[in-house]
């Protein structure tokens, strides 16, 4: 059965007919063709699918598109400025080599931005705990932690 769905994605209103069983991540990747949001597991643990929904980082593989009805979603494609300037958190990942293969990166950045909004000056331990829901197999987290510390500072400074 198909159901009608509408929400805002990266500032744009979108409406579509989807199968009831469509996950939010499937809607984003397959229907909207925003392929920056990734799927790395099927148990809601890796966090590669993290997007922002109404101001909170959530795992878009972990619930239905229908549950996001009327919501405002930001994906990794909607984070940099329209002129291409990176968000301070994205810039911090680049400066601190916080990514290698790049697959977990969008989820890391989306979670980090949400985390940093509430934690402008986090400790290393707080950052590590905040990453419980994001797996990375490349970096050993060392530079991701550094990136988030720097990104949080930059965000707080309004850069």
């Amino acid at each position: 059965m198909a159901v009608k769905i509408s929400m805002k994605v990266n500032g744009k209103a979108v409406t579509a007919e989807v199968e009831d069983r469509t996950l939010l991540v499937t809607f984003i990747r397959e229907h909207l063709r925003l392929t920056g949001t990734h799927v790395g597991c099927d148990t809601a643990q890796c966090g590669a699918c993290t997007v922002d929904m109404d101001g909170r980082a959530v795992k878009s593989c972990a619930f239905l598109a229908m549950q996001a009805e009327g919501a405002s979603i930001t994906t990794i494609e909607g984070v940099a400025k329209p002129d291409g300037t990176l968000h301070p958190m994205q810039a911090a990942f680049k400066e601190n080599h916080g990514l290698q293969c790049g697959f977990c990166t969008p989820g890391m950045v989306m979670n980090a931005i949400d985390f940093a909004r509430g934690n402008p000056n986090p400790t290393e331990q707080q950052i590590r705990e905040a990453l419980d829901g994001n797996l990375c197999r490349c970096t050993g987290y060392h530079n991701i932690v550094k990136s988030i510390a720097a990104g949080a500072k930059a965000m707080a400074a309004g850069k």
Binding site: A44, M53, R56, A57, K59, A62, F115, A130, G133
Partner: peptide
Amino acid sequence: IGDRQVRAM
């Protein structure tokens, strides 16, 4: 509980 993204939902 879970992780911060899971706690948001």
